[in-house]
């Protein structure tokens, strides 16, 4: 559905230095620098897939999205979306896609969102019955019956975002680009939007590319993620594999009946497991938190259970946030 080969996008940026005189100098002589917003990125996305797009600010996520929707021309490389070349601006292509940007609005500012819906209805040539059906569904799912009757400028960020989603989905695009769709929403609403996206994907077999600051969005929606940093695609694959590769450990939390004896026992037990890639994160009198390599997790926990009077024991995967930041720190290899 989406095919990207060797995509590259270069901007020219004016370099400026601080200070009065250097700014005077820059009047006559200025230096430009090429910035590779996206550099040699290739991937393909199958129909119906939801792919999470991860990376820090300025990593190239939005640039890639804009190239995929045709707003930006690639400097080099080939891009095909749904069989179209996006930057040719073909109408048939535009009818099949939608780009939702959390930071920017397509809603008409001074009138209720319902007016934008009506405009989109005629622009996308949606017939009355289909429009009614789709709108009713959206109103119910997003709970915007009242919100959509208020002028957009009076809406809260969350309310606006819901209307934004509704306006973008009236024409049932099968290619959906979501750039920070849950930004500024409260936890409840994030869950609603997430569920909504999942349902939309199932119902309309839509292909969805999603960026988000909230790992929970990505973890909940996507099987597959792409990690991008400084324009380079660093990882493309299953979330679980990313976690395994860059977080080859689990968190083991242990509560036990205290006392000096127990602490000593703990210490010696840990010493005996010294070669299991084991790290103490936190420790109190009755509680210890450990990082343990995946392959040793069962031996370590078994030994601890044997030697100590354990009150409780949990084993968790590290959070996606931790994995990602660790991955960036280590310099992920695709």
């Amino acid at each position: 559905m989406i095919e990207v080969r060797g995509l590259q996008k270069v901007y020219k940026v004016h370099e400026r230095e601080a200070g009065f005189w250097s700014s005077v100098r820059s009047l006559f002589d200025r230096k430009f620098r090429d910035v590779y917003a996206v550099d040699d990125v290739s991937f393909s996305i199958a129909p119906g897939e939801i792919v999470g797009f991860l990376g820090p600010n300025g990593a190239g996520k939005t640039t890639t999205m804009k190239v995929l929707t045709g707003l930006l021309h690639p400097t080099a490389g080939e891009v095909q979306v749904g069989g179209f070349v996006p930057h040719k601006h073909e109408r048939a292509f535009k009818r099949r896609i939608s780009l939702v940007m959390g930071q920017k609005s397509q809603l008409i500012w001074d009138v209720p969102a319902s007016e934008t819906f009506l405009v989109n209805k005629v622009i996308y040539e949606i017939d009355d019955a289909a429009y009614r059906r789709q709108l009713d569904e959206l109103i119910e799912l997003l709970q915007i019956a009242e919100v959509m009757q208020k002028p957009v400028r009076q809406l809260s960020l969350g309310e606006r975002m819901k209307c934004e989603l509704a306006a973008s989905l009236l024409h049932k695009p099968d290619l959906l680009f979501l750039d920070e769709p849950t930004i500024g929403l409260d936890v409840n609403m994030q869950e609603v939007v997430r569920e909504f996206i999942r349902r939309y994907n199932r119902l309309h077999k839509a292909t969805i590319l999603l960026t988000s600051h909230y790992m929970a969005d990505v973890a909940a929606l996507c099987q597959r993620v792409m990690v991008i940093n400084r324009g380079k695609l660093l990882y493309d694959g299953e979330i679980s594999e990313l976690i395994e590769r860059h977080a080859p450990y689990k968190r083991l939390k242990l509560w036990f009946d205290g006392g000096r004896e127990a602490l000593e026992l703990l210490e010696s037990t840990l010493l005996s497991c010294g070669d299991s890639g084991l790290k103490v994160i936190a420790q109190t009198e009755h509680h210890v938190e450990l990082e343990v390599a995946r392959q040793h997790i069962s031996t370590v926990s078994a030994r601890l259970l044997q030697t100590l009077a354990v009150a409780d024991l949990t084993i968790e995967d590290p959070s996606l946030e931790d994995v990602i930041s660790q991955a960036f720190a280590a310099g992920v290899q695709p």
């Binding site: 804009k66 929707t69 939608s98």
Partner: peptide
């Protein structure tokens, strides 16, 4: 301000 993009993305 980039709001032109929203119009450009629509088939009109």
């Amino acid at each position: 301000e980039g709001t032109f993009s929203a119009k450009l993305l629509r088939p009109f």
